[in-house]
Amino acid sequence: MRKKILQIIDENRDNIEALRDHLFAAFNKTENKNYDSKNASPEEEEEITRWIVSNEIHFIGFDNTEDVRRVFVNETSKVSFLTQSHCNICQDKLPISNFPVRITPKTRQTKTKLKNEFIKQFLNSPFGKELNFSKKDKLCVKLVFVFNRIRDKDLDNMAKLTLDALKELIQIDDKNIDHLELIKFKARYLESFIYIRISKSDVNTANNVILKGKHMTWAGLTKLDE
């Protein structure tokens, strides 16, 4: 049955309604039920969810490819991979904007001087000037902090300063960021800089969720609202 379910998912992953219909049909046939995919109750969907999981199928949105150890020619190629690799969570919704800012990552909370330097370097940069995002867009943001010959830095504080500057420069509001990825890379040979990647995020859309069942047991713990 596991093979059959995976086949259904593979053949219908681009049509969520068809995928629901086929999964309900397979469940009904196997379990001798008559659940309607268009009008199923949360309890019925929860039952189908348990059936899918019982067939050792988890996180079906991800491809189960074998991990390969990565090697890089030099630090430049490694940073290029870190900065430009696709987001497997947000599906890389267009538009996508990638740009570096030649400023040493900072963590201090005295914002004005550091933010002004960030803005100056951004405006002098040939990258990132055309950002086609509206104020309503939900965003996926990756920040890669490359630093050389300086002591280690707090990742969250570097991110706060950068996001504050972006908010002032290009109206990227923190509330619109649904997925934030932070990376720090301690280089031996490269100069220090910040690399920024922005795209649309679909994390909070429901069009890739098959079943409504909650299927969260919390290991038998009592619900917090009870």
Score class of each variant (00 low, 15 high):
residue 8 I to G: 09
residue 140 C to E: 12
residue 75 E to A: 00
residue 133 F to V: 11
residue 225 D to H: 06
residue 204 N to P: 05
residue 37 S to V: 02
residue 24 F to K: 02
residue 92 D to I: 04
residue 5 I to G: 11
residue 39 N to H: 13
residue 1 M to Q: 09
residue 65 T to E: 06
residue 139 L to Q: 02
residue 34 N to F: 09
residue 179 H to C: 07
residue 86 H to M: 02
residue 133 F to P: 12
residue 208 N to R: 09
residue 197 R to H: 04
residue 140 C to R: 03
residue 206 A to W: 08
residue 132 N to D: 15
residue 191 E to T: 12
residue 175 K to R: 13
residue 220 G to P: 02
residue 102 R to K: 12
residue 157 N to D: 14
residue 88 N to K: 04
residue 31 E to L: 10
residue 175 K to H: 13
residue 216 M to T: 12
residue 206 A to S: 03
residue 57 I to P: 03
residue 127 F to L: 08
residue 158 M to P: 14
residue 80 S to H: 10
residue 18 A to P: 10
residue 183 I to T: 01
residue 109 Q to L: 08
residue 17 E to G: 00
residue 198 I to M: 08
residue 186 K to C: 00
residue 222 T to L: 09
residue 202 D to W: 06
residue 105 P to C: 08
residue 22 H to D: 11
residue 216 M to W: 15
residue 102 R to Y: 14
residue 5 I to E: 04
residue 65 T to G: 01
residue 25 A to N: 10
residue 184 K to S: 11
residue 219 A to D: 15
residue 102 R to E: 04
residue 118 F to D: 09
residue 108 R to F: 09
residue 102 R to S: 05
residue 225 D to M: 07
residue 49 T to R: 00
residue 36 D to C: 15
residue 2 R to F: 05
residue 158 M to Q: 14
residue 40 A to C: 07
residue 132 N to H: 09
residue 2 R to C: 04
residue 21 D to Q: 14
residue 221 L to M: 08
residue 214 K to A: 13
residue 61 G to D: 10
residue 198 I to A: 01
residue 166 L to C: 15
residue 199 S to E: 15
residue 89 I to L: 06
residue 23 L to K: 03
residue 204 N to E: 13
residue 210 I to A: 01
residue 29 K to W: 06
residue 172 I to P: 03
residue 113 K to T: 13
residue 13 R to K: 14
residue 100 P to M: 05
residue 64 N to V: 05
residue 165 A to N: 10
residue 223 K to E: 14
residue 8 I to A: 01
residue 192 S to P: 08
residue 205 T to P: 06
residue 146 V to R: 02
residue 14 D to E: 11
residue 30 T to F: 00
